[in-house]
Amino acid sequence: MSSNKYLIFLGCAIPYRVSSYEISARKVLAKLGVELVEMPEFNCCGLPLDPVSHEMMLILAARNLALAEQQGLNIITLCPGCAGTLKKVNKILKEDKALREQINGHLKEAGLEFKGTVTTKHLMQVLIEDVGLEKIKSAVLKPLTMLKVAEHNGCHILRPKEYIGFDDPEDPQTLKTLIEATGATCLDYMDETECCGAPSVGVSDKVALQLARDKLNHVKMVDAQALITICPFCHIMYDTNELRIEKMFNEAYGIPILHYPQLLGLAMGMSPEELAFNELRVNASKLLTQVTEGAK
């Protein structure tokens, strides 16, 4: 691949409170030869406002796509929600001429136009399709063979299949494959593709926390040493709430929640400090000791 150069679309959740994901992803991508260009003047992808106004979501997403088209670069996102929205809107507007004209009528006011000339990929899709498994494997200097972990894909990287369509939503394999490329074992567990509950926070915390609790219970059942996520919202949901759930429901987990690039970064020989492990709420020091000792 000659053109591993992308516009990075950060979205809102990551700069708001998940810098450990951004830090580790940038480090790993740079080492794998993926060049990132900052995306000026972007706005929220639109997804959070879709429940209130579909029209507003379409305009906001199309504005981002139009900005990327001006730069002539494809987009990479770290958030599956952003990737899904930009993909979906790109497809809808390319296929529906009347709607495209309506949305472009709005963008014209700001001197922009959607043409449908760029594609959007989530980090995971870039890793598997553009960087490639071979290159990732050859970048692994310290295989994490001592680790047994579980994966959590989250909803928006999988569903709806019609728009996202790069993995099987009922039996997703990409994240597993990427985890195993680090040398770690990826364990199967109950209800792997279940929602983390994050979108219900603020509407019903009760429902949200119950869903997160189910997930942590299932992950604990198979003795996973960590849960690996690829979404800022899923990460917030588990990492921020694990201690709260333990107290509320009288549970004990102690399961660190890692961003996939943190896991990959460790395997590539980067230090926990470089990968912002210190920003995690759930302490990962036990796991890090296992990694250091296992490597001896």
Binding site: S19, R26, E55
Partner: peptide, 27 residues
């Protein structure tokens, strides 16, 4: 962000956003 080694956060363009959203029914 600077101390974390991250590039500056791109500034949004509220004026351009408001222009694009002109006429949205909900607003």
């Amino acid at each position: 962000r600077e101390t974390q080694g991250l590039p500056p956060l791109p500034k949004g363009n509220p004026a351009s956003i408001s222009k694009s959203l002109k006429g949205v029914k909900f607003l």
